[in-house]
Design a protein around this nucleic acid. Sequence first.
DNA 1: AACAATAATACGACCGGTTGTCTTAAGTTG
DNA 2: CAACTTAAGACAACCGGTCGTATTATTGTT
Lengths: 198, 198
Amino acid sequence: MATAIKQLNKENLLSQGVQLLMEQGYHGTGLKEILDAVKIPKGSFYNYFSSKENYAAEVIQHYIEPFIIQLDKHLQNPELDGLSALKNYFGELITALENAGFKGGCLLGNLMGEIGGTSEACQKSLQTAVHRYQRLLAAGLKKAQNEGTVRIDKPAENMAALLTNAWQGALLRMKIEQSSEPLKQCCHDLLDDYFKVR
Amino acid sequence: MATAIKQLNKENLLSQGVQLLMEQGYHGTGLKEILDAVKIPKGSFYNYFSSKENYAAEVIQHYIEPFIIQLDKHLQNPELDGLSALKNYFGELITALENAGFKGGCLLGNLMGEIGGTSEACQKSLQTAVHRYQRLLAAGLKKAQNEGTVRIDKPAENMAALLTNAWQGALLRMKIEQSSEPLKQCCHDLLDDYFKVR
DNA sequence: AACAATAATACGACCGGTTGTCTTAAGTTG
DNA sequence: CAACTTAAGACAACCGGTCGTATTATTGTT
């Protein structure tokens, strides 16, 4: 098969995996379900990936990419200061989650909980995905520190870690409360209060 | 079978379920594995629970109970102020997680991510478990507010929500980093800084 | 108190369906 | 036609759940 089509199939497999793994979890989603969704025969799966586990590890990377790009876009916006960029970014995330009906939440958080301790390959993949994301968040906070809108008595990396942790927890709460209120409160508490200069 | 023995069997089923569901997730743990562990035949399972889903919902309640008791014990300690009680409590949790080798993490967080959006029965059970826990945490923070160690310009319920969210996120990080550092930083950031009077 | 009739429970074999993976053969390409 | 890629279906293992039966407990009748 032409390598271009093969790439396309792989891409489809990955983005369909993002959706299904996020909503139903790793063990809750069978290969058959994924393959049916992208109309690829079951026997072909192992031409694209060496195992379900390695597939999931790639899905993780494929998942985080758009978020990195979206966050970076806000941070690069020359009309926005760092703190406003972060607020806008999380605001966009919240409306997206509302429109999606609070389904799924965050693939990273869900998989960390489900298989973060049992699958070594996915653990590694989750590590790098989270680190990449958090590093970018820290860069945004550092920028805000230089602009004088965020307190400087705490390292930006530290605050970035707290922000991602609280955000993950808020996403879990969102899922069982079926409400965006936890997300809003989380952003407000940190970005409008805790991180502010005083 | 004598009802006393039946109760014992059910208890064993529940506590074994806590362990297995926490480490391997809902879909990652088969009924057979649980039943083998407590030496109860397959056919008997449905004499104790009406389905795997309802079983998991009861496991959730069985899981949270000891944490409520442990936290309450610290808060009731007349020699401790509220803030110190909270710090001691989370300190105990951290050493317990270290001794367990960072396995599992929190059953509530894991299940919220995995099936919080797909299983209605478990969603309900998770809601009440989290609320009970968070209410107790808020009571401790309120006590600390009255004692003058915690800021009063924020509602205790608000801070309790932030604390549980950040703690959940820190547990996920712990799992993939295999380190208690995220937990320690989480407690320090909130209990030693953000929540303090200023 | 002894026994029979009946109800309740415990149990392992078994259900249809699905899992992730592998073998094998057909198809594609240079 | 040789070398390689793709796909179809087979594969054993396992899933959650059911069922008929064997065992135990309870009740009713002498």
